[in-house]
Write a protein that binds this DNA or RNA. Structure first.
Lengths: 201, 201
DNA sequence: GTTATTACTGCACTGAGTGCAATTTAATTG
DNA sequence: CAATTAAATTGCACTCAGTGCAGTAATAAC
């Protein structure tokens, strides 16, 4: 019953948030040290100081420890797209939304996760599977911006192209080490969409 | 030590092939009847008349029962691409390779699998994850056709675009029931690549 | 303080997937 | 055909991810 400004976060929420981050940090450290497959949920729970059962109150599965952070990021992209100008080309809207949210991107953590995934085909598959959420987020934003039912198919196609471009950008960024900026990779990947589809050979 | 033409298939290989198909048929039937998640490997093995352990000599995992057939198909696409003319645009090469292998596509089984995946988000994710194999197959074919190292990035990009177009084609085909031919969907999806990336919405 | 939520824990259970040793079946050779 | 080799198949025991449940501890609200 505080009168001074709606309390934004109680002790409970803060604890939850901190524990969530703590579990993630501990897990990534263990994965880097011992590999993803050989690290069991028992070890993670023990290292994080909680029960194994309680892990599932924070993450739906072992994979989600690595990927769940992206959901929040995807949600921001969807909102950015929805708030864009409907006069611009759809692909341009998506590109700008990606670029404008890049600052919230945790590069260090992403690099660590990329390292964990290297040499683990199963994890790469799951990473790929997770891309479906990015695509749905883009589609959600685009549908809010252009709600006309007739445009559904072309918006879906734009979502597919966009998620492909983003994957390509991430790929080149990871490959070229830290010598290149992720934003440049994104710009280039979306440029490629226009170039590649009309060139001969 | 037969002299009359190299024997193409022994009893062993034929049995293996037949059992492989049989297991697949039985599994799809059970999945349709009782759902994917609720059907256990024990049930599948029992219905197929083999031991549970032996299932893993045919499929690496439960998912692979649904997806492993595509590998053979992907391999044919890779070979078709590799045998194409290097004078055509890359995207055109891929489109033709897809179209020319469409006859080998088991539409009935694909429809059944699509039905199983409907309302099962986890399976849809795994389906998406499997797309990585299609992309690798396309990339493999393209790399054989244009081995120059400098072209790697653009070929990778073409692979990404192609797998996206194929997914879109599959989506529209499944959505519009049997009223439309899959080949038409593929043609349209690749046309869209050229249209969508230059238009101003 | 008391009470209602929510967080956490332990336990027992299911089901996928693996390693291993033993057995059966098919292919090969003399 | 008999003996040998190789592959297919099986059962068993095991690990680990994930779930349901019932009970306990901590926090928020009154």
């Amino acid at each position: 019953m505080r009168q001074e400004s709606t309390k934004p976060e109680g002790l409970r929420e803060r604890n939850r948030r901190e524990k969530y981050e703590h579990i993630t940090d501990v897990s990534i450290r263990l994965f880097l040290e011992n590999g993803y497959d050989t690290t069991t949920l028992d070890e993670i729970a023990h290292s994080a100081g909680i029960s194994r059962r309680n892990l599932f109150n924070y993450f739906d599965s072992k994979d989600e420890i690595l990927f769940s952070h992206l959901r929040e990021y995807y949600e921001m992209i969807a909102e950015s797209i929805a708030r864009s100008s409907p006069d611009e080309p759809a692909l341009e809207v998506v590109r700008k939304a990606i670029l404008s949210n890049l600052t919230r991107f945790d590069a260090e953590r992403t690099l660590a996760i990329a390292k964990i995934m290297r040499n683990n085909a199963a994890l790469q598959s799951k990473n790929r599977a997770n891309e479906i959420n990015l695509e749905k987020a883009i589609m959600k934003g685009l549908s809010a911006l252009w709600p006309a039912k007739e445009s559904h198919d072309r918006l879906l196609f734009v979502s597919i192209l966009s998620s492909g471009a983003i994957r390509f950008a991430t790929y080149t960024w990871l490959r070229d080490g830290n010598e290149i900026k992720l934003s440049d990779c994104v710009v280039e990947a979306f440029d490629r969409l226009k170039l590649e589809t009309r060139c001969t050979k």
